[in-house]
Computed example of a mutant assay.
Amino acid sequence: MKQLSASYKVQLAFFAFITVMLVARVCYSGTLMYLFLLWNLFLAWVPFQLSVLLSSKKVRSKTSAYFILAGWLLFFPNALYIITDLIHLEDVDTDVPVWFDAILIFTSSVAGLILAFASLFKVERFLQQKIKQHLVDRLIVGCLFLGSFGVYLGRFLRWNSWDIVTHPLDLLAQITAPFILPLQHYRTWGITGMLTCLFCLLYFTVKKLPGLLEEPGKTSFKL
């Protein structure tokens, strides 16, 4: 029997914890509020699976690889998007403690970011095999920028990834407008820029974290 990788075990642990919290909330409140978090987590899981497929040996042709990469980029914002679900803390419909909902949504956000960064790391390793590292670094920042822009489209303009198929012209108009008239869409670029900085800080910190923990302390404190 094939054993689950450490990555999948972490995902299952988060999913189980969130599911238990949701079940407890439904039983306590009698409402189905926040069940959408499971759907959002599924959408966050899609780009991770695409990144796994991209890094597997099953993909042999360049055409297939770049097609998967395009699909990953399309769904990548869904993994980052969950962090914005924290705004739902304002939606109070029951006597469920705010701290409980805060932990629930925060845990879902962390799970989404884990899936996002894990998939981005796999994409980064794929790109490292194709182009030079300094170009890879720029492309990773570009992916986080596009992901942040996608979060803005989803949270504030209420677009979904599949709208590129169902409403392509309307979506294209919404996407191109901020680029054509950037000064009139300062709010778009302000939010996108802030999210890009946040996600870059988090991603590159997570990448450096093992090294930071292993570095010998240069300063000693004496009592």
Rank of each mutant, 00 (worst) to 15 (best):
P182W: 09
R155P: 04
H167P: 00
F199V: 10
L169I: 15
Q184W: 09
R187H: 10
P178V: 13
Y152T: 04
H185F: 15
V206A: 15
L181C: 13
R158D: 11
T188F: 14
R155L: 14
I180K: 05
W159D: 08
S148A: 14
L181A: 13
G193I: 11
L183W: 10
L201G: 10
T205G: 03
R155Y: 14
T192N: 04
L172E: 00
L198C: 13
G154N: 03
V165N: 00
I175M: 06
S161P: 02
H185S: 11
I164V: 10
Q184K: 12
T192P: 02
F204A: 01
H185T: 08
T192R: 06
T166K: 03
G190D: 14
L169H: 04
N160G: 11
F149Y: 13
L183N: 06
D170H: 07
D163S: 04
F179M: 12
N160Y: 07
P178E: 08
D163W: 01
L202Q: 11
G190H: 07
F204M: 00
V206C: 11
L171D: 00
I191T: 00
I180L: 10
L183E: 05
H185D: 06
L172Y: 04
G147V: 15
T166P: 00
T196W: 13
L169A: 13
F204R: 01
S161R: 02
L172S: 08
I175Q: 00
M194I: 14
L172G: 03
D170N: 08
V151E: 01
L153Q: 11
V151H: 02
Y186I: 15
Q184D: 08
L153C: 05
G154K: 05
P168E: 04
